[in-house]
Simulated assay, not measured.
Amino acid sequence: MSFEFDHLIHYVREPNEAIRLLRQTGLHAVEGGRHEQRGTYNALCYFDLSYIELIGVFDKQLADRNRTPHSLLHTIANASYAEGFVRLAIRTNRIEEDAERYAKQGFEVIGPVQGHRKRPDGSSVRWQQLYLAHPDQRFPLPFLIQWEENDEERRHDLAKRNVISPHPSGIVELSYVALAVLDFQTAADWSRWFGLALGDVVTDESIQAVPDAEAARRESEVLQAGRRRNRIRRAGGTRGRPVYGRFIGRLEARGSASSRRTLPIQHIRRTKKSIQMQGER
């Protein structure tokens, strides 16, 4: 089992507005195109082959008719089309084998489902997706994606199309994705199910990713996925109110100490030095 972090999906009402705001922060973002059969369209912000997808709906009736169980549209509709984090995608090159293996392990497996997107220039990009659900997991699981082209072919093509391009703000990497959860069992489950190694103990009070006083002293589990880190955190809320599934993605700009900064992503709102996407699920 060999997976790579592929992308993060965030629902927005206006992907083109998201492009404008990302560009104002010094990030390179482009139109992705339209999923004609699903009623959705997107904007993309790439960091090598990993990226943030900002997805919107151009035809809600069409989108509602294509709500495959456990799919992105299913997750978006269940959240009443509220802007915010939707799902994570993990890249694979053995999607048929993965489908068989997860089915044998007791997962509900949907797919592989064929997907394609029409780019602004009229060309198409194609892939397969595998949606997973497990009776022991309420938190939406990542889905698997296998692109029609291999990694090197995609990197070359995306660079030629100016989709992958240097960010005006400098060298920027997607360093990790953090998910705040209530129970460490989520981290243990994801580690076992997706072949992710449990790593360092971390906390992040900026997203209330610390347990309450009775729990295990402000700790959380870090999952390693290739060069990208998926952090699964139990969160305690303020005034005794827990945070359910609150998410924050961070982009860390690498550079000199004076220019180094963190760009949180959650409910697109411009500040002087960051885009913040605040919002909870």
Rank of each mutant, 00 (worst) to 15 (best):
P166M: 15
G245M: 08
F194A: 09
L27C: 09
A79Y: 13
E153C: 01
D212W: 08
R241W: 05
R229W: 07
R270M: 15
V163E: 11
P140A: 03
R117Q: 09
V57W: 04
H74A: 09
S206A: 15
H7G: 01
R192E: 12
L251H: 02
R229M: 11
I164C: 01
R65E: 13
C45L: 14
I145P: 00
S165I: 03
R34E: 09
W193L: 03
L21T: 03
P242T: 09
A99S: 12
R65M: 09
L21I: 11
G56Y: 01
G56P: 05
H134F: 05
E83I: 01
T75W: 06
F85M: 11
E100S: 13
D183V: 06
L88V: 08
I52G: 06
L179T: 07
R218Q: 15
A225W: 14
R270S: 01
Q128P: 00
V210I: 14
E4C: 09
S274Y: 14
V113L: 11
G245Y: 11
I52K: 13
G26W: 08
G236W: 14
E36D: 11
T25S: 12
G33C: 01
N230Y: 15
R34V: 08
N42G: 02
G26K: 04
G279W: 06
Y102G: 00
R119M: 14
E53N: 01
T75I: 13
